[in-house]
Design a protein around this nucleic acid. Structure first.
Lengths: 340, 340
DNA sequence: CCGTATTATGAAAGCGCTTTCAGAAGCGTT
DNA sequence: AACGCTTCTGAAAGCGCTTTCATAATACGG
């Protein structure tokens, strides 16, 4: 062991061993300028002999680039993230970026986020739903830092790329189905989180369908779902306790649909015979529920892919699609009353 | 706009504006030495006025540290990763690290991995199951780079911390249950991927249970499951086609259990009346299957937490628990024949 | 063979931060 | 009033890489 072999090799060590300058080493490292063949070999030999691994920090500093994509969210739970992450990761990998993930959203101020995922610590940032408030988003945007929003449109008048899924038309179609095919009239809607944009559009689709069929909207039939199983169950329990009649439930998402089914089962109401239930998202387990859930498939992995793709494009070219709206597809199974 | 306001502020700009040296700015930034009160204020004012965000790359270079934890896997798919990731992320957040994720495992050589997640680009690395071959693991270990293995024990004689779950005793217990309570004798086992250590121990538990009950092991009853739904279905289909009798199936994991149930349903065999089915992992949807799956709960999120915790400990103190073996718990539902 | 166009290589500056080492104040003692 | 201490602050040297600029080496046409 040579005296310095305990310390990891640097470009200098390689240069010395190959009897060239560090500039040359750098050049063979990055193929950034022609180097004569024999020298290339010498340098490569030296590199592998010394087990040289270039320090990213040094390179980043010199180039003021990080080669990293940031992903900001609030939590990783739920079946929702696995596919999204998977899509993001795939694109990051293909395009040569690394993925830095943080759930610091809304736990930390945008200054703190800046320290970790912000300018100069990442080349761009994907922000999921409302992990960051408007001022935080503006904060980045003002600085010209590349960001793309996922499942959330930008604050008014800010030109920030956004990728999300079609919610309204799909919801509308789902409710139309309930009304036209299954003749349901008293349809409960369990809305998602207030701040969530998806919630808004799904509810709008619901309202439009009812209106189109001249069914008056009963405010008592619209309750909290919060995209949460327990909340949904509670709401349904209360509806039942209050003696409010209904023959269908449009849960804001599949997760709450599970809660709905729980509540219904617990009070001996048959799904779909007594009450039809539909969800949204088509998360993995929806097909396995009893009965299998009629829902809308959101191409979550594709959302991830697109988000990463747009971000990379934004970083590299300065431009990206303002809005990527991915199509959704109604998935008819049995919980609506069909034979799926 | 001052001429340089287009360029992000550096520590020099802050220093100039606060009329101090950059050393002082650095000191108020890191509270690394006392600075008189009025100066602190001046500096902080300058920082916020200039919207100064320290460059991590520069800091990393100076400190030769990265403040990042790497996570290496092969893919992010499957219900398995969400909880694990969630646990890892939680601990990373608590301990002040960032999470760098890569699915480059086995797609890239360890040299290439080195470039991204290796020494100096990350402070330590978590390696999931067999995302990296033995030589890759040795590669890091030799260099004294902190790594912890998840769901995989280290190559012989290498002292590398590992966190995984108890497989054998739980499998044994599960099979015991099938035999003792439900009087099954011809129990199929669908083993997981060869390379996967979990597969090995689960099979061992199976074998030990049979032996203990003096049931001869019929090699025809042991087939490929690969922790994969389709593979499992195919194997069961073939067994049935070959006319081999069996009254229970121990799928290597829940994922393959789904395939088993599919295959059984398709041939009008009742679960559990004709064939009992049990799995392993207790992934989220297992409770929703028809019938609900009897399985073993693996504390996956805790695995993530522990892995991150051990890694941080290893980085900070140079030592970590050689083996963290998390307990598993048998979850009796209905697919085994109980009334769950 | 010589002057010029073309390459391949090296020296050195710089990326933005931390930290060591000295020096400048400020303080209480004698 | 001079001394030694203790605090606080600044100058400057790195951290390891990229890149510009200049130079040495080679090739070429005449």
């Amino acid at each position: 062991m040579s005296p310095r072999s305990r310390q990891a090799a640097t470009i200098h060590d390689v240069a010395k061993r190959a009897r060239v300058s560090i500039s040359t080493v750098s050049r063979v490292l990055n193929r950034t300028a022609p180097v004569s063949e024999d020298i290339v070999e010498r340098v490569q030999a030296a590199m592998s002999k010394l087990r040289f691994v270039p320090r990213t920090a040094a390179r980043n500093l010199a180039l003021s680039t990080t080669n990293m994509l940031g992903l900001l969210l609030t939590d990783i739970y739920g079946d929702f993230f696995a596919p999204m992450l998977s899509g993001i990761d795939a694109v990051a990998f293909e395009t040569g970026y690394h993925l830095l993930i943080s759930t610091a959203g809304r736990k930390k101020s945008s200054d703190e986020i800046d320290q970790s995922l912000g300018a100069h610590n990442t080349d761009g940032l994907m922000i999921f739903a409302d992990s960051l408030d408007e001022s935080g988003i503006a904060h980045f945007h003002e600085r010209g830092f590349p960001i793309v929003l996922i499942h959330q449109s930008p604050p008014k008048s800010l030109q920030i790329p956004c990728v999300t899924v079609e919610n309204k038309a799909a919801s509308r179609k789902l409710i139309d189905h309930l009304i036209e095919v299954h003749h349901r009239k008293r349809i409960v809607h369990l809305r998602g989180p207030q701040a969530q944009e998806d919630s808004y559009w799904r509810e709008t689709g619901y309202r439009e369908s009812l209106e189109a069929h001249a069914i008056p909207i009963d405010p008592r039939l619209i309750g909290r779902g919060e995209f949460d199983r327990v909340t949904a169950k509670t709401t349904i329990d209360q509806l039942i306790a209050a003696g409010i009649e209904f023959d269908a439930v449009f849960a804001g998402d599949d997760e709450s649909a599970i809660g709905v089914i729980d509540a219904l089962n617990a009070t001996n109401r048959r799904v779909p015979a007594d009450v039809a239930v539909v969800g949204f998202d088509d998360q993995r387990l929806s097909a396995f529920l009893t009965p299998p859930l009629t829902t809308v498939r959101a191409p979550t992995e594709e959302v991830g892919r697109q988000a990463a793709q747009q971000l990379v494009k934004l970083i590299r070219t300065g431009h990206a699609e303002p809005l990527t709206l991915l199509p959704t597809e109604m998935i008819i199974r049995r919980s609506c009353g069909c034979n799926g």
